[in-house]
Every structure is written in structure tokens, then in C-alpha cells.
């Protein structure tokens, strides 16, 4: 407990220092950058009534975040729905691995900014294009980690499956899946992090309502304090998501 309070105090001090730097920057070199106080003054209507909808792009921060989260959830589930089986196939079949690994290595480093236009060409609508981009960019950690997990299944367990003559389905549900689960979850956590990174880019380019879309619109309307509000929201939500997945992961490893 004491340790915890100590750590909390230290992180508050860190936060204070960064806030101080921010205030200093806005007071000296960058007069366009709103100070922390001005940011709060100009943003509090969004924070204090987070669920209010005043217009398409003028909504409380809670609603904006909810839109983004919902979009991320859809893209993320699409990613793990495709990524998990793909990882299993890559991990279990050498032929499959040799066939697709080079392509995957090629696709993996492509930025969301590059996929999005392609998505728009493909689907002609911003929503599916955004999902396409999120799924495609966030899929890889799931694919790679699942594959690694399958490769790392101890020979002992495979021997057990063989000696007990488990059916293919049972082998999968009773041996492969539980043995790979911790790896899969590490993949999911990383994927979710990337999905949240991509959402901002996707919303910016498509102009859909959400934290990213809001950020871009406020930039165009020159209301810089709202940009800072968006940035802070993105950071806090991303942090919360990572912690949630991390918690699920430790719970899983404890089994």
C-alpha cells in the first residue's frame, strides 16, 4: 500500500512537470499553443456535459469517445477474427508459412495512411474503409503472436494428444488452444493498441465523428485547445484499454 502511494505520488510529480513544461511553452515560444488553463476553460463544456449532442461534429467528449471506441471495437474484432486463424495456420503448417510469410512481412510495415485511400476505393464509403484500415493494420501482432504460440507448444503436449488419440477437434480445443491462449492474448493487447492508434488517422481522413474526426475538424477551425483535449482523451483511453487487456492477460496466465 505504501509502495503504491509512493508510486502514485511520483507519477503525479511527473505529470506536474510535463504540465509545467506545457505552460512554459505556451507562455514563451509558442503563443498559439493554449495554456493548460485556457485549454480547460475552452474545453470544459465538452468534459462537463460529455453526452450532449449539439451538432454532427460538436458533441460531448463522452459521445465522441464512444463513437471511436465502437469503431475500434468493430475493427479490432475483425482483426482478431481473421488474425487468429491465420496465426494458427501459419504456426501449424510449414508450407502455409513459406507461402504467406513473405507477403505478410511485406504488408506489415504499411502505414494506415496508405491503406485508407485503398479502402475508400474498395468500399466507396468512409465507415467500411475505416474498419478495413483498422483491421488490416492491427491484425499483425495477433497473427505473429498466435503463430509463435502454436510453434511453442511443448512437444510433450503434442505427444499426449497423439497417445490419447484425440480427435482433430479435441486436439484443437483441449491442447492447441489452451497452450496458445497466453500468446494470443499478448497479440490481442498489442493489436488493440494499434487499432486505437489507427482510429485517429482513419477518422481524420474520413471526417467521421469521433475523437480523431473532432481533432481534425477543430484544427481546421483553428480551435487549438480542442486539439489538446482530443490528444489527452486519446492518451487516457489508450492507457485504459492497455491496462484492461493487461489485466485480462495476467488473469489468464494465472490459470
Amino acid at each position: 500500500m505504501k509502495q503504491f502511494l509512493n508510486n502514485l505520488a511520483l507519477s503525479l510529480v511527473g505529470l506536474f512537470i510535463v504540465g509545467g513544461l506545457w505552460a512554459l511553452l505556451s507562455a514563451t515560444v509558442s503563443p498559439d499553443l493554449p495554456s493548460p488553463w485556457r485549454t480547460w476553460q475552452e474545453s470544459k463544456v465538452y468534459i462537463l456535459s460529455p453526452w450532449e449532442k449539439r451538432g454532427e461534429m460538436d458533441q460531448g467528449i463522452g459521445l465522441m469517445t464512444a463513437y471511436s471506441l465502437f469503431r475500434v471495437a468493430k475493427g479490432f474484432f475483425l482483426a482478431i477474427l481473421i488474425g487468429t486463424p491465420l496465426g494458427f495456420m501459419l504456426g501449424s503448417s510449414n508450407t502455409f508459412f513459406k507461402m504467406f510469410d513473405p507477403t505478410i512481412q511485406l504488408l506489415r510495415p504499411i502505414s494506415p495512411l496508405a491503406w485508407l485511400p485503398l479502402g475508400l476505393v474498395l468500399f466507396r464509403q468512409s465507415e467500411p474503409a475505416a474498419l478495413f484500415t483498422i483491421a488490416l493494420c492491427s491484425m499483425w501482432p495477433t497473427v505473429i503472436n498466435t503463430m509463435t504460440g502454436v510453434r511453442a507448444i511443448p512437444q510433450d503436449y503434442l505427444n499426449v494428444a497423439r497417445v490419447l488419440r484425440l480427435s482433430k477437434w479435441r486436439q484443437f480445443t483441449k491442447v492447441w488452444l489452451p497452450a496458445t491462449l497466453p500468446y494470443m492474448f499478448t497479440g490481442y493487447r498489442l493489436s488493440l493498441g494499434i487499432a486505437w492508434l489507427v482510429i485517429v488517422a482513419a477518422e481524420m481522413l474520413t471526417g467521421t465523428p469521433g475523437v480523431g474526426g473532432f481533432l481534425w475538424q477543430e484544427y481546421n477551425s483553428l480551435i487549438y485547445s480542442h486539439i489538446l483535449l482530443s490528444i489527452l482523451t486519446i492518451g487516457i483511453v489508450g492507457f485504459a484499454l492497455d491496462r484492461m487487456m493487461g489485466f485480462a492477460e495476467t488473469k489468464l496466465r494465472a490459470i
Partner: peptide, 25 residues
């Protein structure tokens, strides 16, 4: 086959480990 290192599946209980074999057999 009884393995030298037992090779039980750690995510299953003692009963489930045995029952898995029985169900398959």
C-alpha cells in the same frame, strides 16, 4: 504410454486429464 515427465495438461484438472483419455478411448 506413461511419459517420464507425466505430461499432464496443466489447464485440466486431474479428473479432466483422465476423462479426456477415457472419452477418446
Amino acid at each position: 504410454y506413461i511419459f517420464q515427465n507425466y505430461s499432464l495438461l496443466p489447464w485440466l484438472s486431474a479428473f479432466e486429464n483422465v476423462n479426456l483419455a477415457v472419452e477418446a478411448a
